[in-house]
Design a protein around this nucleic acid. Structure first.
Lengths: 351, 351
DNA sequence: CTGAAAGCGCTAACAC
DNA sequence: GTGTTAGCGCTTTCAG
């Protein structure tokens, strides 16, 4: 950690009053109302006055006050986006999808982060709603009663994203994580693996990882296979955790022939570890992760994974909000299920 | 990409009018003003009425309207945070630092993303300032004239972060990327490397990477060394890019004995590539990256890197904003320089 | 095409 | 302790 070296200087703020419409009005000799019209490109204003106003506004450096505007117009062009984490590799993609769509509209995303903590979700949601956004996009389909109540009472479009295994407050876009787990389980069984180990995040925090695990065990059970060993982690560098957990698990249960990880990052750690050990992948041990993160493209072996449609989920969610705002009474799809694709890569099919 | 299966349902919104203070006032039989006081924990209110109000508010599900509150009180407890990217591995850390500090205050961070595009920075800044935030934290120390003008005119605390090689609008917290590059150059020269290759992002977009490069070449020049080859990329999976660029560069300039990468992710790609090729690291080729990302802990070799003090920068920036808000006239440090530490890892010192 | 009046929902400042 | 009055800076609405 760096220490700090300081250069002392007195810094005093010029006690400037922020400019108002009135200032522009006076500077341009045009009524406030007309100035407002020019600045919003609304109604008909003669070319002459328009230019006069624009020039005055620019010269003064006027920046409109959205607080006042929003209060007067009863419209706030913000969409609250509530997600568990930013350092996740998955939500930046969702955000990109959302931003891309909203860029063509008046709407702007504002993000809140919950760290997977329900209490924090409640708080963030409350703060968000108190700004009276036009819509909310929120990750996950399980929320506290209080959160659901707030969302319902808000009277604005609410899109729950990522997961569709449950009952949405309003509407939902995502994949079925249960189904995703099942697909992976089937693929593993079909490939002939029999001794499966599972590694993932501590479940209570992450409903989607839990559902994938449930889907996996269900599908394996049908093939007469039980998960032979499992381990959960929280916090820390995922890549390093993947290594550690893999080492520990193989130490404990040496006869495993397949390892399923709840995310690609720990899977990558596991892969690197096994490669170091000189293990033959996938003939000796097969591997799979989840998410389809771009990172994987640079790994020594193409890792089996499943794309979570993150980007598409972001786009669709933003489209939904924007559509519902444009046509509040239109009939829409309450639940939009996206279907992830399974990439076998080089670690799931024996050669 | 998943296609979508849809369940049609008519979803109509109950045409609810959002609740106001007046509703709570009527429901509790207490004046609006007193309700307001209770909800903000301000002034003296008797225990009896306080409870009555709270009960009514909770029963109705009242969520205060911050738009109106902000307009009336002329205070907006938001701090605008403007950064180039979220998918970067570096800014989430900065955000964490900021959030941690702001959590103990009334202030809340609101982020805007510029994608390293000056025009977008201007737009984001304009939008941000139109909400009249209490302060701004903005990445980088180079901004367009228009952006600087807006920041100066805003009359609020502005903290420029990450980089201190330049003249801040108001104050700055960061490291000297020039110095960081220089340190790395010295270390490389001292370790006895002589044929240096550089790989990084396209410079015009990333001032900090450019400054590190300048520092590097300067230090190497003093040791009589020139950068023997260099290559720049933009976009794509950084890990894969690191592989590709490394392959291409060694193909072109096979006698390189050291590779310096402008970020850890491409460095990691290069490392994996070289290891695949069976190259002896660091005796045949040495390596270094930049950032000190956690990811590195799981790599097969501990990569040489330099910590950019991201977390600490976030903390300090938030503290600065919060302090200046508390004591606007206090004399403060205009520039706070943090000092990155160089980790030699296992790729920079020959054995 | 332009302007005047009336609030949006809340809080500061002052009475009681 | 509690209530009253007047705005915050803008937009809506309606008149010219």
């Amino acid at each position: 950690m760096g220490q700090s070296k300081n250069r002392k200087h007195a810094v005093t703020q010029p006690p400037k009053r922020p400019l108002t419409l009135r200032d522009v009005s006076e500077a341009s000799g045009v009524s406030e109302m007309t100035v407002s019209r020019v600045l919003r490109n609304r109604g008909d204003v003669s070319q002459t006055t328009r230019e006069r106003v624009l020039r005055a506004a620019k010269r003064l450096g006027y920046v409109p006050n959205k607080i006042a505007g929003a209060l007067a117009s009863q419209r706030v062009n913000l969409v609250g986006v509530i997600i568990p984490s930013l350092s996740n590799m998955v939500f930046p993609d969702v955000m990109t999808g959302i931003s891309q769509v909203l860029e063509d509209t008046e709407l702007q995303p504002v993000v809140g982060v919950t760290d997977y903590i329900p209490e924090k979700e409640e708080k963030v949601l409350y703060e968000m709603l108190s700004w009276r956004p036009s819509g909310v996009i929120i990750a996950g389909i399980e929320h506290s009663d209080a959160s659901r109540a707030m969302l319902e009472a808000s009277g604005i479009p609410v899109v729950e994203i990522m997961d569709i295994d449950g009952q949405p407050v309003d509407c939902a876009v995502g994949i079925s994580h249960r189904r995703a787990g099942r697909m992976m389980g089937q693929a593993i069984a079909e490939a002939g693996f029999r001794r499966i180990g599972f590694m993932g995040t501590k479940m209570p925090l992450d409903h989607r990882a839990r559902k994938r695990f449930e889907g996996l065990t269900g599908a394996l059970a049908k093939a007469g296979i039980e998960v032979a060993d499992q381990e959960f982690y929280s916090g820390g560098s995922a890549l390093a955790k993947g290594r550690e957990m893999t080492a520990a698990m193989l130490d404990r249960t040496p006869d495993l022939d397949f390892l399923y990880y709840s995310n690609d990052m720990i899977a990558a750690g596991g892969l690197l570890y096994l490669l170091d050990k000189g293990i033959d992948i996938p003939n000796q041990i097969g591997l799979a992760g989840f998410n389809g993160v771009e990172l994987l493209n640079g790994l020594p072996r193409q890792l089996a994974t499943m794309d979570a449609c993150r980007f598409e989920i972001g786009r669709k969610a933003a489209e939904l909000v924007s559509q519902r705002l444009a046509a509040p009474d239109a009939s829409i799809d309450k639940v939009i299920e996206l279907f992830p694709t399974l990439s076998y890569g080089e670690t799931l099919r024996r050669t």
